[in-house]
């Protein structure tokens, strides 16, 4: 079976900026694939090249075994693209919008209306797109991308700017779309989103893919540092340092920011027992590594969304 996407050595330059600097990736059919990175990492340009709306300076792309550039009308019905901005015709209702876009694919009004219901917008069918909330517009945009039942779906930062409730609703929808057997490619700058949704994630920065893998595997691959924190004021930081050293604990960092006393370590057991002996467990939190730590590890800097 051919891969849903295979890209090899794509590069794109805008003036002085090397937006995409040699990206190669393979997405298998049915996979939920994420491209994760801060703003300006080159995610959107990479997506545009994959979708076939931009010709790369260098490199080769194949979607479902076909080249997306130049425009390939045979390929177009098999892919669906959701846009970062809400690209709708002016002054149309949600129903008119999706029916119009569906008609471009020879899809009739019944299926278009069914898709509107599918994304939970049946009661907003007569609302002008200009009057919809951010979450509703995003869902309509996704519905428009899905109306013609594509096998490969591109989603560019679908949850940006949504409130937490709307994000979670959208996650459910995206998971369902993938469960139906569609290949989904998603860009995001939210680490939690990638962690929750994606089978595999590529971490991107400065136009390059730094690492690719399942979110859990990526986290496991880096040093599993555990971060232990308790409420401040139970144990002075100097005293803690002495006790931990005496107990032979391997401490990476130790700090007190006046709210919490935090310890990073690879071996949590001796640290926890020291804290227990001192009866300093109020507000205890033990947290494993996250994608944020992976990012920090890979780029040497904090993740900036």
């Amino acid at each position: 079976m051919t891969a849903a996407i295979s890209a090899d050595g794509i590069r794109q330059r805008y003036g002085d900026v090397q937006a995409v600097d040699g990206v190669s990736l393979t997405v298998e059919a049915g996979e939920f694939y994420g491209i994760l990175g801060p703003n300006g990492a080159g995610k959107t340009t990479t997506m545009e090249i994959l979708e076939g709306v931009r010709e790369p300076d260098e490199g080769r792309v194949e979607l479902l075994g076909m080249a997306p550039w130049p425009r390939n009308p045979k390929l177009l019905p098999r892919i669906g693209v959701q846009f970062q901005a809400s690209a709708f015709f002016r002054k149309l209702t949600a129903r008119e919008t999706i029916r119009t876009f569906a008609s471009f694919y020879g899809v009739g009004p019944k299926r278009a209306d069914a898709m509107l219901e599918r994304v939970g917008l049946a009661d907003k069918a007569e609302t002008l797109t200009e009057q919809m909330s951010g979450g509703q517009a995003q869902r309509l945009s996704i519905a428009c991308a899905l109306a013609h039942d594509p096998e490969l779906v591109f989603l560019d930062e679908p949850t940006t700017g949504l409130d937490p409730q709307a994000r979670r609703n959208l996650w459910d929808l995206l998971r369902d779309i993938n469960d139906e057997g569609r290949t989904v490619v998603l860009t995001t700058h939210y680490l939690d989103e990638a962690e929750v949704l994606c089978d595999r994630v590529s971490i991107m920065d400065h136009g390059r893919i730094l690492h690719t893998g399942a979110p859990a595997a990526l986290i496991r691959e880096i040093d599993d540092t555990v971060r232990i924190s308790v409420a401040s004021g139970q144990l002075p930081v100097e005293r803690a340092r002495e006790l931990l050293a005496a107990a032979g604990a391997d401490v990476a960092t130790l700090e007190d920011d006046t709210v919490s006393l935090s310890v990073s370590t690879r071996l949590p057991a001796p640290v926890l027992s020291v804290l227990a002996e001192q009866n300093a467990l109020r507000g205890l939190e033990v947290r494993g590594a996250t994608l944020e730590d992976v990012f920090l590890q890979l780029t040497g800097r904090e993740f900036r969304a």
């Binding site: 119009t100 569906a102 008609s103 471009f104 020879g106 899809v107 009739g108 019944k110 299926r111 039942d149």
Partner: peptide, 19 residues
Amino acid sequence: ADAADGRERVSAFWSLSRA
């Protein structure tokens, strides 16, 4: 895509003009 509902006939030209 037309296989999904072949009975519904739609024209991209008319629906775009209408929009």
